[in-house]
């Protein structure tokens, strides 16, 4: 087991290297550069060229990449080309907001998805199943920004129950205030995650219900609910582990659309601004960070899988 983890961790290094090259190449292949994002007609070409040179943007792309990599190996993610603050600090500063938002949304989605999926699977093709499946289709197909605006309109403008934007009231620093601001964005995100999770749980429930052990339980006289929540549940939880492992990366990359609509101060909205301004040190920082977490999340899921189902462990 330990060997496996070590091996997988070593494998991440070339992978991250590869990710960084692809990402950098894509940024450089796109037209435009960060200096253009703050140029106005009143500025002289000479000034623009000087600033571009001072930022190193006049060098060929491979040289820029080399310089970036050299700094990275020293543990420095560089400085934003637009507001000139250190990238690592910018990401860390916004990490708690995003991790909190996504954590709550994923947790809520899983808690709701398991019973809903089980019920839908158990009543395969009955009206309950149809309703749940229908709602999950809505969740997948509805554009998040639209849903978000609709909820803001309803709960903030019409009912005045909740604030419409931000993470806290100006000047107020309390957990209750943050929670109040978080309800809408968390609900929107949870709804979108929920939909795909429910479909996972549902199809795996349908599969499990055909297994022999279920028939045996019925033969022993167990009720439908006991079979479902005591026996099938355990099997259904397995794919959820993989889902959670994959979502570790989402914990940091966040939800660009949702964060932007709700002015949630997370990494998603930082990334959005960076992409618009071609601010490559920030884009690279976020990409690397999320790639790293995706790899770790997968590894974690594999390890947990081994614990949850010893058959898998022994087969390796």
């Amino acid at each position: 087991m330990r060997q496996l983890i070590a091996k997988r961790l070593i494998q991440t290094i070339p992978l991250l290297f590869f990710v960084s090259i692809v990402c950098f190449a894509l940024i450089k292949a796109a037209p435009g550069d960060p200096v253009l994002s703050f140029v106005t007609p009143n500025m002289h070409a000479e000034d623009i060229e000087r600033v571009r040179a001072n930022l190193g943007l006049d060098k060929p792309a491979y040289v820029q990449y080399g310089l970036w990599l050299k700094e990275l190996l020293k543990g420095n993610l560089g400085y934003s080309l637009v507001n000139h603050q250190p990238v690592a600090a910018l990401i860390l500063e916004r990490l708690p907001a995003t991790a909190g938002l996504m954590g709550c949304a994923i947790l809520l989605a899983v808690i709701l998805a398991i019973p809903l999926g089980l019920i839908a699977g158990a009543f395969h093709n009955k009206w309950v199943d149809k309703l749940i499946t229908f709602l999950s289709y809505i969740g997948i197909s509805v554009p998040l920004f639209w849903l978000a605006i609709l909820l803001i309109y309803l709960f903030a403008i019409k009912l005045h129950w909740l604030p419409s934007m931000g993470m806290r009231t100006v000047g107020v620093n309390s957990a209750a205030d943050v929670i109040k601001h978080g309800i809408l964005p968390v609900s929107v995100l949870a709804f979108s995650f929920l939909s795909s999770y429910v479909r996972y749980v549902r199809s795996s429930t349908i599969g499990q219900l055909r297994e022999d052990y279920v028939q045996i339980q019925y033969a022993y006289g167990s009720s439908r609910w006991i079979v479902l929540f005591r026996h099938v549940l355990k099997h259904v939880l397995l794919p959820i582990i993989t889902l959670l492992g994959m979502s570790l990366a989402e914990l940091v990359t966040g939800a660009i659309v949702t964060e932007t609509v709700f002015s949630w101060p997370g990494i998603g909205s930082l990334g959005m601004t960076a992409v618009r301004g071609m601010d490559y040190p920030i884009i690279m920082g976020i990409t690397l960070f999320s790639a790293l977490l995706l790899i770790i999340g997968n590894l974690l899921a594999d390890v947990l899988y081994g614990f949850a189902d010893p058959r898998i462990k022994s087969s390796r």
Binding site: Y153, G166, T260, V261, S263
Partner: peptide, 13 residues
């Protein structure tokens, strides 16, 4: 100065 990135959301706020 409150940062409201989405103009529709800013209008609602």
């Amino acid at each position: 100065y409150r940062i409201a990135k989405d103009s529709n959301a800013a209008l609602l706020a």
